[in-house]
């Protein structure tokens, strides 16, 4: 009947199609300060997903009537490159891109001290170079690092990951294949040291018990992503120090 029954995504002993365990995340590599003409930038390789994020600001809000008198305006621009997916994607912003821009902005704004920069705007440009599932999670995690690189004061880092339901089992960090064949997908953005959720979405169908299990799984995954983010920050600063010594 369905294709997923012929090609099993999870084997008998609980190993997924790419060799991961059910609660194992993909290899994640963050890098800070990759772009010269932005205030802050970050690059992430999240399995086969590759995303570049640039932050500009705080700078004067344009158009000026949109400026907020008591805080900075945060704006996210999520964009997928035409070559990022299997079939050519139209370069025009799609409904999905506009929606993701909005949810990414709302996931990051609670972490930023926006009240320190009244009447300015902080622009976050997200370019998805290669998409293989969890692009919104990778975007949020990388964007929070780009904001850190820009020196913008933040309450906490925002780490994000998704849980899916594939063949009746909950799996952490869904990739494209699993997302398409799976029954449900649930991304979450989380501030680990504040224990605060800034984004929680879900599609598909899961039971109440599965939902509670998912939340625990998501928290565990977010903390793993958070560790990777902190490692990236440390290695970025160590690199900066050694560069200074060389110069």
């Amino acid at each position: 009947m369905s294709e997923s029954k012929i090609e099993r995504l999870i084997s008998e002993d609980g190993i997924r199609c790419d060799g991961r365990r059910l609660d194992e995340i993909r290899p994640i590599k963050f890098q800070l300060g990759v772009l010269k003409n932005t205030d802050g930038s970050a690059y992430v390789e999240w399995g086969r997903t590759k995303i570049l994020v640039g932050v500009m600001g705080p700078r004067e809000s344009h158009p000026k009537h949109l400026a907020l008198s008591d805080k900075a305006r945060v704006e996210a621009y999520y964009r997928m490159a035409s070559f990022s997916v299997e079939e050519w994607k139209s370069p025009a912003p799609s409904r999905r891109e506009v929606e993701l821009s909005k949810v990414i902005r709302e996931a990051l704004e609670p972490a930023i001290f926006v009240e320190f920069f009244p009447r300015t705007s902080i622009d976050i440009f997200i370019e998805v170079l290669q998409a293989d599932g969890s692009t919104r999670c990778a975007s949020i995690s990388a964007a929070s690092l780009a904001l850190v690189d820009a020196g913008i004061p933040m309450r906490d880092l925002v780490a994000s990951i998704a849980v899916g339901k594939v063949e009746g089992k909950l799996v952490l960090d869904v990739q494209d294949k699993e997302d398409k064949a799976g029954e449900s997908d649930m991304p979450m953005a989380y501030m680990p040291s504040k224990n605060a959720v800034t984004l929680l979405q879900m599609d598909g169908q899961i039971t109440h018990d599965e939902f509670l299990q998912s939340i625990e799984l998501l928290k565990k995954g977010c903390i793993e992503v958070y560790k990777k983010q902190k490692e990236a920050i440390e290695s970025h600063f160590k690199g900066a120090v050694s560069n200074e010594e060389e110069a």
Partner: peptide
């Protein structure tokens, strides 16, 4: 250079 501790937000 003295050993410095790098911290991240939060």
């Amino acid at each position: 250079m003295s050993k410095t501790k790098i911290v991240s937000p939060g």
